[in-house]
Simulated assay, not measured.
Amino acid sequence: MRTTDWGTAGKAGGARAKVGNVGSSAGTGGPDHTLALELVPVTEAAALAAGRWVGRGDENSGKAAAVDVIHKLIPSVSIRGAVVIGGDGQLLRDGEEVGEAGSPACDVGISAGDGALSVARDVPNALVAIAVAERGALYDPPPAHSMEKLAVGPDCADVVDIDRPVAQNLRAVATAKGVGVPDVVVAVLNRPWHRELVYQIRDAGARVHLVEGGEVAGAIAAARPESPVDMLLGTGGAAEGVVAAAALSCLGGSLQARLRCKAREDEETGHDFGEVLHTRDLVRGESISFCATAVTGSEVLRGIQHHGGHSTTESIVLCSKPRIVRIVRSEHRQAGRRERGEHRFA
């Protein structure tokens, strides 16, 4: 166990960290390793800001608070990034340059609240996530469009096909995992347009795990061995699909997607709405960093917890090169008190 002081932590909360190493890849340095850790204080602070609106029923204020914090703190990160995903048209506009001049050029994807901010109703799976990849690596979907998605972990990446019937994919996942179809758990956004999909999954004999909040958290859950979720299916935000693909790229999982055309005029945007997009189409770079902090809890991360004098957050930090997964648990003291974070590597 050693103690590490993040260079950017002072700008994002002044946290000191206890860092422990697990596995042969732990402790491996490199640009992705360093950059991913620099993102942690940013997503932590943004999640804490959004968390103040949990349960208040305000769909916009929580997301706005998170975006405001990211806008203020991301200049402390050693990148020269262009916002490709997640620009809200005000503080963080699509195409806006963020970070430090002279740093490596890259694309930045942001998911603040994961679609409609679920914390407004205090439901699970809301998180704040930032994905960073090489310049030109992140797919830029048309704005305000939806995306049909199928996400699985590394053990099922080569056995599913979004063009196949749901039942066939469920049988393929069950075979790959060495279980029966009744043991397969599928995460589906709890939305009215998924009624038929839910019926198909249950009719095939599998179990449905309805996700109230975020698809990004659901996709990560499908790729993590400690999660009960085996697959994510359904239609949600296109921007969230790209951010989720960045996470799955680091985890060795797979995301297959199709843009959904809302109107005939959308066909003239230059995007192929019938084309199947794979993880490598959504995130084309080889060097990817991803960090997400939970606002409310999920199958992978604990949500923000408030105690007397401090709050705790839990984040997942992913790198593609070298491939490392970290779970970071931090304790945030109230103003005037020393902050510290305890880091557990998974």
Rank of each mutant, 00 (worst) to 15 (best):
N21W: 06
N21F: 13
V22W: 14
S24V: 13
S24T: 09
G27C: 02
T28D: 10
T28M: 14
T28P: 00
G29Y: 05
G30T: 04
G30E: 06
P31I: 01
D32S: 07
H33Q: 11
H33T: 12
T34R: 13
E38C: 05
E38P: 04
L39N: 10
P41I: 07
T43W: 01
T43S: 03
T43H: 03
T43F: 01
E44Q: 14
E44K: 04
A45C: 05
A45H: 04
A46K: 03
L48M: 14
L48N: 07
A50I: 02
G51R: 09
G55E: 14
G55T: 13
R56Q: 13
G57F: 13
D58E: 14
D58G: 09
D58N: 15
G62E: 08
A64V: 12
A65F: 07
A65L: 08
A66R: 07
D68E: 15
D68I: 01
D68L: 13
I70G: 05
H71C: 11
K72S: 12
K72I: 02
V77L: 11
S78Y: 06
R80W: 10
G81W: 08
A82N: 13
V83K: 06
V84N: 07
I85A: 09
I85K: 10
G87L: 11
G87N: 08
G87I: 09
Q90A: 14
L92A: 07
R93Y: 03
G95F: 08
E97P: 07
V98E: 10
G99K: 06
E100V: 12
E100Y: 00
E100K: 14
A101I: 09
G102Q: 03
A105L: 12
A105G: 01
D107F: 05
G113K: 08
G113F: 11
G115P: 11
G115S: 13
V119R: 13
V119K: 10
V119Q: 15
A120V: 08
R121L: 15
R121P: 00
V123F: 06
P124D: 09
N125C: 03
L127W: 00
V128I: 11
A129L: 09
A129W: 07
I130W: 02
V132W: 06
E134H: 00
R135D: 07
L138W: 05
Y139K: 01
D140N: 09
H145W: 00
S146Y: 02
M147E: 00
M147Q: 00
G153V: 04
G153R: 05
D155P: 00
